[in-house]
């Protein structure tokens, strides 16, 4: 029993790391642009494909992952330059830009699906080979789990340093706290925004790469992760990095460990997995205003 529960841990950790990374990117993007970018699923998908194709052509998984991140970064920046920024400069409201991001998400996904269909890439498995490192109960902790945890650690340490110590990171905090004041202080708000977009896209691309190493992918892979990523970010209130990280772990563990427990206790079908993020979102929205706990850890 306990051994079986322990067996859920590796998958939970992997999922948590994936969601946490993409969600932190989403939170960062929201803090600076006030946009909960719906198209983040597409940056994840591009990360999936780049990593899968590169590993299939024998490139090592770490370099492939970094290149997947770079691709996500470029796409995220391009979408901003071609769509969101232009709309905002013409005086679009935040709701209008959000709707545009939903549109961008669908457009990119369908165009990419057509391309994938032509190239016969609708269903793809990466060239990453998973090897056990140690065993937790009956389930192995593989090199993929190790890679995911190291990547997450590097991400957290790197972002913490960026946000607290560097000029760009401080400017991000300034913009998040008061955009008008940031502008009249002479902070190059649009340039900082571009840097933010690159980082958001990079994190999305990297989590896409890890996903591609974990399972087979298709043009909807990132889109399907969106619910989990958004609920992690919602737990972080779209503003708090520590809580967003926690959110990733709550969602990642709940859907695996929690689902397993529900399945064991009540015989609940695992097909009900998406219930978990919905419950998390509902719970957070209900309780957030009652206990302003988020303020405690907001950066």
């Amino acid at each position: 029993m306990i051994e079986e529960a322990l067996g859920q841990l590796p998958t939970s950790l992997l999922a948590s790391a994936l969601y946490a990374m993409a969600a932190v990117g989403l939170t960062m993007n929201y803090s600076v642009t006030r946009l909960a970018d719906f198209a983040i699923g597409e940056y994840i998908t591009f990360g999936c494909y780049v990593a899968a194709l590169l590993t299939l052509s024998q490139l090592d998984p770490v370099t492939s992952m970094v290149l997947a991140g770079a691709t996500g970064a470029l796409i995220a920046l391009s979408v901003d330059e071609l769509a969101y920024k232009r709309l905002e400069r013409r005086g679009a409201t935040l709701l209008q830009v959000f709707i545009a991001s939903v549109g961008a998400s669908f457009t990119i996904r369908y165009l990419f699906s057509i391309y994938a269909d032509i190239e016969d890439l609708l269903f793809l498995t990466s060239g990453f080979s998973s090897q056990p490192v140690v065993f937790l109960g009956t389930r192995p902790l593989t090199n993929l789990h190790v890679l995911a945890l190291i990547t997450l650690t590097v991400t957290v340490v790197g972002l913490t340093y960026l946000i607290l110590r560097t000029k760009v990171g401080k400017a991000m905090r300034a913009i998040a706290s008061n955009r008008d004041l940031a502008m009249v202080s002479g902070i190059p708000v649009w340039r900082i925004r571009s840097i933010t977009r690159l980082l958001t896209g990079f994190l999305a691309g990297v989590s896409g790469a890890l996903w591609a190493y974990y399972t087979s992918i298709n043009p909807e892979s990132g889109w399907r992760m969106l619910l989990w990523v958004f609920s992690s970010a919602i737990i972080g209130n779209f503003t708090s990095f520590p809580l967003t990280l926690l959110g990733g772990f709550v969602i990642g563990s709940a859907e695996n460990l929690g689902m397993w427990a529900l399945n064991r206790a009540f015989g609940l079908e695992t097909a009900y997995k998406p219930l978990i993020p919905y419950i998390a979102i509902a719970a957070v929205l209900l309780y957030r205003n009652r206990y302003r706990f988020t303020r405690l850890v907001e950066l």
Partner: peptide, 21 residues
């Protein structure tokens, strides 16, 4: 500005740094 004329979550030094970005 009349209101919101400092970044409250940042230190005095950081506020000045932002002023001289």
């Amino acid at each position: 500005p009349q209101t919101g004329n400092v970044f409250p979550d940042m230190t005095v030094l950081e506020n000045l740094e932002m002023g001289g970005y």
